[in-house]
Amino acid sequence: MKDDSLKPPLAGVIYGEIVYWGLLISCVVVIVGSVLSFLGNSYVPVSYWLSTIWKGESVAEIWKGAVGALPNGHWYLDHLSKGDALTAFGISLGVFPVIPGLLLCGLTLLKEKEILYGLLAIGCGIIVIIGLLGLVPAT
């Protein structure tokens, strides 16, 4: 017989549900973006992206041939009406829910007097935000 002690903790459920539904919404955005790209509405043609990748060109060469230089930032935010940019936005949108998920999970744990775990969860969320903002320079 399953008992009440098997009820999942609220903080875990909150994190899980935010990530799960956020990701499903992002999938719809990715599908729409992919379809738009194939219908010709693309910032850089789909055939260019896939051919250069297939040829084994480096990331720098691919971007140089496409727009002249590496994007170094969230380039897709300026071109959201284009299919490939919308696809990139969709993928980022799928990753993003981890941040509110961790922060809300942390707040829930704090509310439940789990101070250490609450702070650790918020700390994790802040580290992901540092990654999102590119605060640790890669070049």
Binding site: G33, W49, I62, D84, A88, I91, V98, V128
Partner: peptide, 30 residues
Amino acid sequence: AISNATAIWTYITYGALIAVFAAPWMLGQV
């Protein structure tokens, strides 16, 4: 998922994630 969600932003902002190529891999994983 948490660790990769941290790491992937570095690749995204650098331009190494080519969305058109990555999208079907993402959908398949979901």
